[in-house]
Design a protein around this nucleic acid. Structure first.
Ligand SMILES: [Mn+2]
Ligand SMILES: [Mn+2]
Ligand SMILES: [Mn+2]
Ligand SMILES: [Mn+2]
Lengths: 219, 219
DNA sequence: AAAAATATTTAGGTTAGTCTAAATTTAATT
DNA sequence: AATTAAATTTAGACTAACCTAAATATTTTT
């Protein structure tokens, strides 16, 4: 139906739009996709022709309903495959993204449904990101970043905002994974760095930025 | 490393060479791949440049050691994914080929090794074809076609030569699958069609050609 | 409100992978 | 051994997906 490149562009637009609610710029897509802005312009014309996006020269783009559907289905497949790779093949959470980036493009509706069933309908992927259901609906849950926790309060890790491999390896080193409890012991007023207690056992210092990437439920 | 099209061409050459031991012709590859002979010629030049095949104009091609390795690794991945689809996702044997045709191109050596382990090192795929190991070695076993069985003798289905969806659906109808026992009751001298007993329960008539496609071990 | 800086598009080009039609080589048949 | 038929390659063309450099629009700063 759609090429790998078309799908990846639609996903990029979706993800960028998720953070900043305005129309998505050509340059932001190019940065996300690691391509030249001129290449993005070419693709935007094609996607607009197929009514997958609303596009006006120089004004940025938004996804049309059909484009949004393609993007969400792609994200659904990506996250289901990530669950498979971690739960069944025992990959670590920092290893799965590149492989899922390929697997998400396998075309077979039946495959996705059977995979989802086989995995017992997971609602979140190994990074804590919600997996849209068949109809494109995401499961919502209330979550805070560790940066928002007050000293003395504890949270359970639900997910991470940053998916960078080196960041995930850094968390591995600190013994932080999904389900880990984080108690904020102290916040530095100078640079907002935090002293935290990990699973009631390891004490460590993290920067404000790192704290911002860690998503928890309050306990 | 190699494109989907390059990989598929190498696999086609391998599979055609498997049956007819002479150099593989341009037209046979074109027929196998459903493309124009001219397109195959273009690809053969490219593969020869990369030393994946031995190619002389008008003389057909053979795989080089490196080309053979690529083809065998692709077949390995294809068949491992087919096992996954049937054993884990409960697809039927006639549904898995097209999906595996895509999955075989996913690039990750680690993925293949983990998948193989997860599947507990299967030696044969859902159609009874051998799965090459990491080093490209196929497991051999002695097998006969039902056409070779003498009346009164029985075999257990090990595999099928024909992978066509309609053929597999026809076998489903007859309750023939891997492991099924086939007893030859009678052979017609006129057209060599056979009356067979399936799993000791269903009697049926099959043509000589169908019998030729059914591979069994003698019991 | 000009000027300067930045973002975006256009112009023109490349490579991979396909095609059809024509030319050429090889194989088969008189 | 010619002639005809079949197989294969060459020539020329197209689309998708990229690129760089130049032109143009928009935004920001003076
Ligand atoms: Mn992708
Ligand atoms: Mn993820
Ligand atoms: Mn394939
Ligand atoms: Mn098979």
């Amino acid at each position: 139906m759609f090429s790998v490149s078309e799908e990846d562009h639609l996903k990029a637009i979706f993800k960028i739009a998720e953070k900043e609610k305005k129309a998505v710029s050509t340059n932001s897509i190019a940065a996300y996709m690691n391509t030249a802005p001129a290449s993005v312009t070419d693709m935007l014309k094609k996607l607009a022709d197929k009514d997958l996006i609303q596009y006006q020269k120089y004004k940025g783009v938004t996804l049309s309903p059909s484009g949004s559907k393609v993007a969400i289905q792609l994200i659904r497949k990506h996250r289901l495959w990530e669950v498979f790779l971690v739960e069944k093949l025992k990959f670590s959470w920092e290893e799965v993204h590149e492989i899922a980036e390929q697997l998400e493009h396998i075309q077979s509706d039946d495959l996705v449904l059977r995979l989802e069933k086989y995995l017992e309908f997971p609602k979140f992927d190994p990074h804590g990101d919600p997996i849209p259901n068949m109809d494109g609906k995401f499961t919502l849950r209330s979550q805070w970043s560790v940066a928002e926790l007050l000293p003395g309060h504890t949270g359970i890790i639900l997910g991470v905002r940053e998916h960078d491999k080196s960041f995930l390896l850094y968390l591995n080193d600190m013994k932080i994974k999904l389900g880990t409890s984080i108690k904020v012991l102290q916040k530095t007023t100078y640079d907002q760095s935090l002293r935290i207690l990990i699973d009631g056992r390891f004490e460590n210092l993290i920067t404000k930025n790192v704290a911002h990437q860690l998503l928890v439920k309050k306990v």
